[in-house]
Amino acid sequence: MRLRRLGSVAHRADAEAAGADGSMDLLRVHRPGMGSYFEIRLGARVPGALELASRALDLIEALEGQLTIYRDDSEVSLLNRDAPDGPVAVEPGLFDLLTLARGISEWSGGAYDVTAGALSEAWGFVRGPKRVPTDAERADALAKTGWCRLRLDPTRRTVGFETRGMVVNLGSIGKGYAIDRAVDVLRGHWLPTSALVHGGQSSLFALGSPPGRFADRWEVALRNPFDPESPLGVFRVRNRAVGTSGGAFQHFEVDGRSYGHILDPRTGSPAEGPASVTVLAPNAAEADALSTALYVLGAEAARDLVAARPDVGVVFVHEGPSDHAPRVVAMGLGPRDFASS
């Protein structure tokens, strides 16, 4: 989650009305953050809508200051500095987030791992420049990676590292977590409020039903990674999150070979996954992390894992005969959840 230098614009929420056809009047409030942007869409007629959305975005901004690795004084940066020397007490929300991340690591057999920050640094995906590390550099980074070496004490809410040089990087789950916390702000409004909370192109949570459409669902397009102007289907979501991962979103080329930014923490190299993986899950933090884990694992390895999670649905997009006709594989989704184009 890159902390961007945005000047005064980072402290201002831009708002605009939507729904010119009169069927759904939405207020859209957006602000840059975490290397991307966040947008909250809620009913324009909700009393105090702009102030409510601004408070939610203020919380996201504060969470970036806590979770980013691009500031030496963030809580995560201080944790990375001090945890090798002994247990470090952390804020309860951060402890719960690390507990969730560790659980997903165990569930995925290590295909997901927030302790793989040293690998991201070795490949130049953190501060750059992007590069292919030597075998020795990759082996050294792998030796500093491992969710099993992350010690969490729920009684004292402390975190410790068994390995010096290990780096926690929450870039694969932090945006979703921030969305979940923003949704909590909206849920706390004195008037029941529905909303759609976006984090860039990859993460969102649909709270309630669209304004004026009681018991209906928000409709979210499945992006075609080969042809963004031709969506592959529509998700219909209510009180559920959507998270997408794909290697094409960030990559670099060396000697004609493309290297994606999603690393397999078990091998230390970029995962050669599908074009994209989109997950529907109970919350945005899980949707983000699970999409990363399943991208690394691939569709075949994912089947049993997804079958064991009836609250999770997944869509894999693979290269097909043409950009307009990629291969779409859906798991754990009913016709009310997803309809392909």
Rank of each mutant, 00 (worst) to 15 (best):
R5M: 05
L6G: 15
L6N: 13
G7I: 07
S8E: 11
R12E: 14
A13T: 12
A13F: 01
D14P: 00
A18Y: 09
S23R: 14
S23N: 11
M24G: 09
M24W: 02
R28T: 07
V29A: 10
H30A: 12
H30G: 12
R31C: 07
P32A: 11
G33A: 09
G43M: 05
G43T: 00
V46L: 14
G48M: 13
L52K: 11
S54C: 05
R55Q: 13
A56C: 07
L57E: 01
I60Q: 08
E64F: 06
E64W: 03
L67T: 06
L67W: 12
I69D: 06
Y70Q: 11
R71S: 14
D72N: 11
D72Q: 12
S77P: 10
S77G: 08
L78K: 14
D82F: 11
G86Y: 02
A89D: 01
E91C: 08
P92D: 06
G93A: 04
L100M: 14
I104L: 15
S108K: 06
S108E: 07
G109V: 09
A111E: 03
Y112S: 10
Y112I: 08
A116Y: 02
G117P: 04
W123Y: 07
W123G: 08
F125Y: 15
R127F: 06
P133S: 09
D135L: 14
A136M: 12
E137A: 15
R149P: 00
R149C: 08
L150F: 13
L152T: 12
T155P: 00
T155W: 01
R156I: 05
R157T: 07
T158M: 03
V159A: 02
R164N: 09
V168Y: 10
V168C: 12
Y177S: 08
I179P: 14
L186V: 02
L186A: 07
G188R: 15
P192S: 14
T193M: 06
V197K: 03
H198A: 04
H198D: 12
G199V: 02
S202R: 07
S209P: 11
P211N: 13
G212M: 04
W218K: 10
R223L: 09
N224A: 10
E229I: 08
S230D: 08
S230T: 15
V237S: 04
V237F: 04
N239H: 13
N239L: 02
V242P: 07
S245C: 05
S245V: 04
G247S: 09
A248P: 00
E253F: 03
R257C: 03
R257Y: 04
Y259M: 07
I262K: 05
I262R: 05
D264S: 10
S276Q: 02
L280N: 07
A285K: 10
A287K: 08
D288I: 01
A289N: 01
S291M: 01
L294F: 08
E300C: 02
A301Y: 01
A302G: 09
R309S: 12
P310R: 05
G313Y: 02
G313F: 05
V314G: 07
V315L: 03
V317Y: 02
G320S: 06
G320A: 11
A325H: 09
V328E: 00
V329L: 10
M331F: 09
D337I: 00
S340C: 08
S340K: 09
